[in-house]
């Protein structure tokens, strides 16, 4: 396959950026999207040009690094996958593919397609944890009874890899799906229930402070999420926050 690529190039956070056109030749339909970009970069390096900067790590869909907006969708046109799991058989010979970075005030572009997602880390630091004693006499996990249904819901929420596709997709650059997945995962389990009020108040406060937008309930995040995190989590966070706002003494 021969493909035309329109890739966003930006030298740094202050640069205004622009599209540059590249051609990818002899692309195998069995390649992943990242492998196709690797080949483009190898060619650029051989020509003495600056390769396209993009984030990647595990290349098996669990690290959440490969943030890319491909043809107007986070991680491209497939559902339930990250960019590394998107294969070139999804495209046709002669296609033009537009690649942009995640666009959100809270995710500033570092270079080209690489964005700074440490805002997510700061939200986690604000409350996405349980305070447990790790002195060596840790309790056996099975000694705490957890209903199977709750365990399943908590596990589904915990599959969030923090890739930021929800923010990238949302017309408001809202981080509600990410934050609600973390709030839900812990609020559903006995270990997390102790700090549930402080957690949701602090995490939402941090989320607002970081400059993410509000939720319009369009549901776009749920569709584009590579881990198919459900809007049920956002509803749960709305309930958690309402309860905490009314009863917390903070």
């Amino acid at each position: 396959m021969k493909l035309n690529l329109r890739i966003w190039r930006q030298d740094g956070p202050k640069d205004s950026g622009r599209f540059e056109n590249y051609t990818a030749e002899n692309v195998s339909p069995d390649e992943s999207f990242l492998e196709m970009l690797d080949e483009v970069n190898e060619k650029l390096v051989a020509e003495g040009k600056d390769p396209v900067a993009f984030d990647h790590d595990c290349r098996e869909g669990i690290c959440g690094m490969c943030s890319m907006f491909i043809n107007g969708e986070a991680h491209g046109p497939d559902r339930g996958v990250t960019t590394c799991q998107l294969h070139m058989r999804r495209f046709k010979d002669g296609d033009t593919i537009t690649i942009e970075p995640w666009r959100a005030a809270a995710f500033p572009v570092i270079k080209d397609l690489v964005v700074d997602r440490t805002a997510f880390d700061r939200i986690i630091q604000a409350g996405g944890f349980v305070s447990v004693n790790t002195s060596g006499n840790t309790q056996d996990a099975n000694s705490l009874p957890v209903p199977k249904a709750d365990a399943d819901k908590a596990f589904d929420a915990a599959t969030c890899i923090g890739c930021g596709a929800c923010v990238a997709t949302c017309k408001n650059s809202s981080a509600m799906l990410f934050v609600s997945a973390k709030v839900s995962q812990l609020a559903l389990l006995p270990q997390g229930k102790v700090e549930r009020q402080e957690r949701v108040l602090n995490m939402v406060e941090k989320m607002d402070e970081e400059g993410f937008g509000n939720c319009s309930n369009t549901g776009a995040c749920e569709i584009e999420c590579p881990k198919e995190i459900s809007l049920d989590n956002i509803a749960r966070m709305n309930r958690e926050y309402l309860r905490a706002s009314l009863s917390s003494e903070k």
């Binding site: 107007g72 046109p77 537009t98 408001n172 369009t218």
Partner: peptide
């Protein structure tokens, strides 16, 4: 606030793939 959260817009955005026009036109 929502507009401030995305100061630079996407040049190509396929919003119809994941949300309804009604939900985006409130």
């Amino acid at each position: 606030q929502n507009q401030k959260a995305r100061p630079v817009k996407y040049k190509v955005e396929n919003a119809n793939a994941n949300s309804s026009w009604f939900s985006r036109s409130m």
